[in-house]
Nucleic acid binder design. Structure first.
Length: 480
DNA sequence: TGGGGTTAT
DNA sequence: ATAACCC
């Protein structure tokens, strides 16, 4: 039975051909896709065929966090403001015509009663975001974050365990929770249906737990891959969930009005596709794959072509702790080195706090700028360097002044990018810490001896023999 | 147009 | 280091 998982190459995307291939493979190994076969099947949880994925999407996340912080805002139209934008708003505000990413002036015109709160400091949103991810990780450890307000969870194994707990006669009593996409009828003799229904039950439990424990509402979509789960979660919108059964896959993908609504097809790709006369999902599905590969490269072409059929074999990758920490600030104009330094110091101060709380040590720092009138959208430039080990040592201790050496490093990066002897005009500064390494990651290797804090060596025990110095030594000799 | 994030090249 | 993608 093990080989079932290895041999199957089909995706279980809901595509009819895939389904038939799947059923035939099952027949080959002696398991029928029927009710009787359920308990005999070793479900292919180790590969991409026939998965159960949930996408969880919080309703207007920042606005929800603000309403929890200040319940008086709850029944008022509320917008969260960053600079000149209303980045998100609650449903009261949406009823009155406020949209996401709307200009503040426009939003106030549309809705003079709109209450605005500043959301430029993401600290509380970030914290709540990780509470959500951690809650979902209690269900299954395989949770992938997408931004602050969305998570994918691979429920395949969990569904399988629940099915194994059921008696045969209980299988015919499995019910759905939430909506079924396209009002499709459920076939309780279809194992794929049964599995997705159990997924819908788990999704409901997740949303219930999010509400009971964190006070947050959100949507969920359950389907056989990430693409479809994400599309399904958006079908019924605030605080509802929907499950997609395989037979309605094409209905869902064709319900999109334009290819740009397919997650994975972004701004640039859309422009390129439009230039080729491709606008609808059907246009893309039927377009020459050879020409597409020439225009977009084989990788992108093959991926988005599959996406257009609702096929997505990308796994749910557990996000774990963040790969980077960054803080940015945008402004109308920064044209002096002194002002840049002040702004960089502010960004750095917040970042050092965050890094300290995380516990890991960044080994790389990056400075990002945006110049005025530089093509606007992705006119960002960056310079990075590794952080000297003696500075890394001081990170997170709070006892030493790490600001001064870090600011020095960042200003060197700044002058490397910006000729300060010439006039300049910046509209954004950002500092990023990345290449994070854990302390005490006792890896096998020749340096293992030096990695243990309990054995300070003569070379440094005279001056500093306490734990921070020793663990820092670990980092300075880390494999690079 | 914000203030974040990720991966691929 | 940049460019694409995501929110």
């Amino acid at each position: 039975m093990e080989k079932l998982g290895v041999e199957l190459e089909v995706e279980g995307s809901g595509n009819e051909e895939d389904y038939e291939a799947w059923a035939m493979e099952l027949a080959d190994v002696g398991a029928a896709g029927s009710l009787q076969g359920v308990h005999d099947q070793v479900l292919p949880t180790q590969n991409s065929s026939s998965r159960v994925i949930v996408h969880v999407d919080l309703d207007c996340f920042y606005a929800q966090v603000e309403m929890i912080s200040n319940p008086e805002l709850k029944d008022k139209p509320l917008g969260v403001q960053q600079k000149y934008l209303v980045v998100t708003c609650n449903y009261e505000a949406r009823k009155l015509g406020v949209k996401k990413l709307m200009n503040v002036r426009v939003a106030k015109e549309k809705c003079p009663q709109l209450v605005l709160v500043n959301g430029e400091d993401l600290t509380r949103y970030r914290e709540m975001s990780y509470k959500v991810t951690e809650l979902l990780e209690e269900f299954s450890p395989v949770v992938e974050r997408l931004g602050f307000d969305e998570n994918f969870v691979d429920l395949t194994e969990m569904v399988e365990k629940r099915l194994q707990q059921l008696q045969s006669d209980e299988l015919s009593a499995v019910t759905v929770l939430g909506h079924v996409y396209n009002n499709q009828s459920i076939n309780l003799h279809d194992i794929l249906h049964i599995r997705l229904l159990v997924g819908s039950q788990i999704a409901a439990e997740m949303r219930e737990a999010m509400y009971n424990r964190l006070g947050l509402t959100g949507c969920a979509g359950v389907a056989s891959n990430k693409l479809l789960a994400k599309l399904a979660s958006g079908v019924f919108k605030p605080n509802q969930q929907t499950v997609l059964l395989p037979e309605s896959c094409q209905h869902l993908i064709h319900s999109l009005n334009h290819i740009k609504e397919i997650p994975g097809i972004g701004c640039k790709t859309t422009k390129c596709l439009e230039a080729l006369g491709i606008n609808s999902v059907h246009d893309l599905q039927t377009f020459s794959s050879k020409i597409l590969e020439k225009e977009l490269g084989i990788s992108v072409a093959q991926r988005i072509l599959k996406l257009s059929f609702g096929e997505d074999n990308s796994p749910v990758i557990p996000s774990g702790p963040p790969q980077s920490f960054s803080e940015e600030d945008s402004f109308k104009k920064c044209s002096s080195e002194v002002e840049a330094k002040k702004r960089i110091e502010e960004l750095l101060a917040s970042l050092l706090n965050r890094v300290c709380r995380d516990g890991r040590k960044p080994h790389t720092v990056r400075l990002i700028i945006r110049r005025y009138s530089s093509g606007k959208h992705h006119g960002r430039e960056s310079r990075q360097c590794s952080i000297p080990s003696h500075v890394i040592q001081k990170l997170g201790t709070g006892n030493y002044d790490v600001m001064t050496p870090m600011v020095d490093i960042l200003m060197k990066l700044f002058r490397n990018m910006v000729n300060v002897k010439m006039p300049f005009h910046l509209t954004l500064l950002s500092v990023c810490f990345c290449n994070l390494k854990a302390l005490n990651t006792t890896k096998k290797g020749p340096m293992d001896y030096y990695l243990t804090p309990s054995l300070p060596t003569a070379s440094h025990s005279g001056k500093h023999s306490f734990i921070l110095e020793v663990t820092s030594f670990d980092l300075s000799v880390d494999t690079k």
